[in-house]
Design a protein around this nucleic acid. Structure first.
Length: 579
RNA sequence: CGGGACGUAGCUCAGCCUGGUAGAGCACCUGGUUUGGGACCAGGACGUCGCAGGUUCAAAUCCUGUCGUCCCGACCA
């Protein structure tokens, strides 16, 4: 492609609304343009990258035995009601109405549609296993679109859905996708690694996310340096807090003491009270489907809402407001407690973190403003309905498997694999006749890759101060020819010869045929990040040489007759590293 | 939805406090000089100052409302 004949709208300065570097480079390198918040138009260069990532995904999905299909983005709401997600996913669903006022759903994923297909088309164990995938536009009514393509209202996703006859089969399908994902991201030149994940609103019982480490990532990953454990912080566990929970008791009954104005864990830990945070019980009130529940965690622990969501079994939950808390508990936040004897209403379920199971000699709110209780033995004094792991892991705690200190880092989620089980197949009636003639629900898995997000994640991981450094496998063009003289001069003529020869050899080549000064071309070249630049200038040409400059690497002069072969070798070698 | 910031040329921003003339740099067009890391000179084009009300002789500037964008929190590929 000739630079002068395409649209590469590079920008010297980043638009003010681009915050993170990958978003800035996305715009500065002319890959795409914002239409409005969360919606972007892909320009030719951006689309080329997108297509390359899609191609890698297709190759690996096909290799893993998945079948490509294409499902409607516009979907009838009744199948969403059947699966229950019309309610549980309500907040992210875009809805549209047609001329007869009938409502439609714009697809954020396609479990309902694929399961509908499976319900009519899969009837026998002989057809299984099957795995369908598609690459298509998805819609999500994001509360806050941000960071360019990272979190958009509309984005491109690869979604796959496996159907098996048995749980073991489903595990094998899951494993295949897991392996395919590892290859896909590696081939894109991305350092992505799998972590154990929470299953969220999609449901299911086994899941990994593929994470790209990045300071700007929206996820926190807990990991052990041994490499034997890594998990999303929403899911992560450890051997427990570094400070042990008190377990000794005097046997004394709970004793009320005045704590005027003390409404925080820290205040109670300070003088004159001196009650360490580890020996306090934190009492939180949530509304789960509008019914209050009491949550207990140790004073210095943070409630993990993802873990709570898994135990609550509610379609929606949120922290109660101060007024709601007062109405339910008869006291204000800061003085709350779950000790049965002090509770106003006893029909509220109590969820307690496992850390508190043996806890004795604890201090907690007295359910009366300005008072706390000491000598609380949790199991003796509090009627707990559900014991569960509800706390958030803190860096430095010990790994459950290795005993080494855990670390935490931020990351971008680019892929997610779930073992779904029979949740959707039961609700949407996908079943088959087994060898014994029994009708059984298919066992499903679902597997997503954020394609547009992956594109931006590559930029986030592969850039320097001057611009993007595309991996050869996803670069919009493999080679950039930069003649430094004006059109018609010997440098331009030679560049044109290279252009023809390289194209004939199957190389994707961009030639900067603009009548610009060398410095200007170099700056743009660095910005758009084509992996190999060939500079043809009069000075080196006088010596019979041209220059090869890998983006991010050292410049090398080569005889002008050898240049094409050198370029071919470089491209081939770069691609083989990412095969 | 809660908290914060901001809407002035295609982009980055100044002007607003203290009301009166629409500004700079980059980009764009024309001509010339330049030509190995975002050149220079001369000329030119580009604005309903987000929108709607209000105050005023007079509003980019003050007031009210509204829409939009961005940042922090809850959601997720």
């Amino acid at each position: 492609m000739r630079w002068s004949q395409t649209l590469i709208p590079t920008l010297k300065e980043a638009p003010a609304d681009a915050e993170i570097v990958s978003h800035q480079l996305l715009l500065r390198a002319g890959l795409c343009r914002k239409l409005t918040g969360g919606l972007y138009t892909f320009c030719p260069m951006g689309l080329r990258v997108l297509r390359k990532i899609e191609r890698i995904i297709r190759e690996e999905m096909d290799r893993a035995g998945a079948l490509e299909v294409l499902m409607p983005a516009l979907q009838p709401p009744d199948i969403w009601q059947k699966s229950g997600r019309y309610e549980t996913a309500r907040d992210v669903l875009y809805k549209a109405k047609d001329r007869s006022n009938k409502e439609w759903v714009l697809s954020p994923t396609a479990e309902e549609v694929i399961t509908t297909l499976a319900s009519t088309e899969i009837n026998s164990y002989r057809q299984l296993p099957l795995n369908f995938y598609q690459i298509s536009v998805k819609f999500r009514d994001e509360i806050r679109p941000r960071f360019g393509l990272m979190r958009a209202k509309e984005f491109i996703m690869k979604d796959a859905y496996s159907f098996d006859g048995t749980d073991e089969g489903a595990m094998a399908s899951y494993r295949k996708m897991y392996d395919a994902y590892s290859r896909i991201f590696a081939r894109c030149g991305l350092q992505a690694f799998p972590v154990e994940a929470d299953t969220g609103v999609i449901g299911g019982n086994y899941s990994h996310e593929f994470m790209v480490p990045a300071e700007t990532g929206e996820n926190e990953v807990v990991y052990c340096e041994s490499g034997q454990y890594s998990a999303n912080v929403e899911k992560a566990t450890s051997r427990g807090p570094l400070t042990p929970t008190p377990t000794t008791t005097t046997g004394a009954a709970p004793e009320k003491f005045a704590t005027p104005g003390v409404v925080t864990i820290d205040a109670l830990a300070a003088a004159p009270y001196g009650v360490s945070a580890a020996s306090q019980v934190k009492t939180l009130i949530y509304l789960a489907d509008n019914k209050p529940v009491i949550i207990l965690v140790r004073g210095d622990d943070q409630l993990n809402e993802a873990k709570l969501a898994g135990k609550l079994g509610a379609t929606a939950f949120r922290p109660a407001t101060a007024d709601e808390i007062l109405a339910v508990m008869g006291a204000r936040p800061g003085s709350l407690g779950a000790v049965t004897a002090t509770r106003k209403a006893l029909d509220i379920r109590v969820f307690a973190d496992e850390q508190l199971r043996q806890a004795r000699g604890m201090t907690t709110g007295a359910n009366e403003d300005g008072f706390h209780l000491r000598h609380v033995d949790v199991e003796r004094d509090i009627k707990v309905d559900v014991w569960a792991d509800l706390r958030t892991v803190v860096a430095g705690e010990l790994c459950v498997t290795t005993g080494l200190p855990l670390k935490i880092r931020r990351a971008i989620e680019v892929g997610h694999v779930f073992k779904l089980g029979t949740k959707y197949s039961e609700k949407l009636e996908s079943s088959f006749l087994d060898t014994d003639g029994q009708r059984r629900p298919t066992v499903m898995g679902c597997y997503g890759i954020g394609v547009t997000r992956t594109l931006q994640a590559v930029i986030e991981q592969c850039h320097d101060k001057d611009g993007i450094l595309w991996p050869m496998s996803v670069a919009p063009y493999q080679v950039l020819l930069t003649p430094l003289g004006a059109p018609g001069t010997p440098t331009a003529v030679l560049a044109q010869e290279y252009y023809v020869q390289l194209q004939a050899a199957g190389v994707e080549v961009l030639i900067d045929d603009r009548d610009e000064r060398p410095g200007f071309k170099f700056k743009d070249a660095d910005l758009i990040g084509i992996p190999l630049r060939v500079s043809i200038g009069e000075k080196s040409l006088a010596k019979g040489e041209v220059e090869l400059k890998p983006r991010g690497g050292a410049l090398r002069a080569v005889p002008k007759d050898k240049a094409v072969d050198e370029v071919l070798a470089f491209v081939r070698e770069s691609l083989s590293k990412l095969a």
